[in-house]
Design a protein around this nucleic acid. Structure first.
Lengths: 246, 246
DNA sequence: CCGGCCGCTTGATCCCGGTCAAGCGGGTCG
DNA sequence: CGACCCGCTTGACCGGGATCAAGCGGCCGG
């Protein structure tokens, strides 16, 4: 009530309780008054231009980030310089959890379009978690889901053929966009063929060829980065059809 | 002081402060008196016979498990029945973190030799974490390291050739065994060629052929499940040598 | 508004690792 | 202790996806 107008404004601007992503993000499942507790979880927001990185592998870890809008890829660079895309992140998803274990980030997070994140100092996350059980529980769930997501990718890479992997990728993308209120069937890919290929363990030429094949088969329509899904059921069938490769 | 002798006995038997794995397991880095706080973290111990499962994918989640001795594999089964090995676990490592996010386990944990685990009811883990900051911090680190480990496997599967993957697997195994006081250069594989192949995204015949090739090249000696590493530096070179496949 | 560059597509060829097949040997259970 | 089964090895062949190559076209910056 008596705090300076500017401070109020700042807090409002970064308050989870005012954020329209609260149904997707860390505070999911909290009631309106529980949400107030989280209102100083976020210290600031940070804009990241397309092509810039939020943090780099090897940098000291200090905070988690929630995507407010935009699109990110995470990449891992091996000793000999090979780069592997390990994930794509969109609004409401949490970044930086890889850094908790070793006090430095292991991967690099790069914006694929102009983006903004909420900065949550990790000490603050842990403090609030200790004093506020619903946040603790939810934070643990988010960490665990990241593990499960990664295991899903391991299954994809370890036991699926190229066409199954790409189909799974498209289905997954469609589902996540739907959850964010975008069209399930028509979207613009933010990443290049090369990045998709790295993520899915295949070469960019293979990605391109498969897109063309899916188009011939009437499953999708592609023009460069524009994708329209014509037959989601067909894609799901491709995804789980063939008998193992690899 | 006044508790019945039996209770004392039980508590001692499951007390982290008495456990010789405390340097590897959840309590790592805690001082002697901090350790006391954890002495009722473990509710019971549970033996799992070779071939039996600690839990199955789909089962309700209630507890985390720490391996006391033995060896486990975790597997994921896809919709169409394909099975993928997602990890191998040995003494001091934590199992079950995949279950936190969805209140059910997503993978199945199977003992590859007679084993024993400490059962830590998850509600108790969260309770203690809220009241005991060092445990909270360490638990978060363990979760995060599992994410990092999985990302390492993604890199392996997504961007390395078969021989590099197998070399990386052997080096990793050797390192983890060393940390547990076993020989770095001589050990018995607890898993089959098929399980190694599933984990590494290749067929069992390929695993077998590569073992033979490594032997010809003087890197290792293999006889069935017995492996002796002759040239760890050579393996590391194989691991990072070739210029990308996939 | 235009030029250049980067990302995409498509074709031709090659090779790593998958598939199929056969036989061996060691550990386990009766 | 011995037989059987399962896991391992090795060979021959095949095919999916990598590699190499060339050309196109959309988009961005000037």
């Amino acid at each position: 009530m008596t705090e300076p107008a500017l401070a109020t404004l700042t807090r409002l601007r970064t308050a989870c309780s005012q954020c329209n992503l609260r149904e997707l993000c860390l505070p999911v499942g909290l009631s309106a008054d529980e949400l107030q507790t989280l209102d100083n979880l976020v210290s600031t927001r940070r804009k990241v231009r397309r092509g810039d990185s939020l943090f780099y592998g090897g940098e000291p870890f200090s905070a988690l980030y929630a995507v407010r809008y935009g699109f990110f890829k995470s990449t891992l660079t091996s000793g000999d310089g090979r780069e592997q895309v390990t994930g794509f992140y969109m609004a409401g998803e949490l970044l930086g959890m890889d850094g908790i274990g070793g006090d430095r980030h292991t991967c690099t997070l790069t914006a694929l379009e102009d983006s903004e994140v909420c900065v949550m100092p990790f000490a603050r996350v842990e403090d609030l978690s200790r004093n506020f059980e619903p946040l603790q529980r939810h934070f643990h769930k988010v960490l665990s889901r990241e593990i499960v997501r990664d295991q899903g990718v391991m299954m994809l890479l370890g036991s699926m053929r190229a066409e199954e992997r790409l189909a799974a990728f498209l289905v997954n993308l469609s589902q996540r966009l739907t959850a964010r209120g975008f069209s399930a069937s028509e979207f613009v890919l933010r990443m290049t063929r090369d990045e998709i290929g790295s993520y899915l363990g295949m070469k960019l030429e293979t990605v391109s060829r498969l897109f063309s094949r899916f188009q011939e088969d009437g499953l999708i329509e592609v023009h460069q980065k524009h994708v329209r899904i014509l037959d989601i059921g067909g894609l799901k069938r491709v995804m789980a059809q063939a008998q193992s490769a690899t």
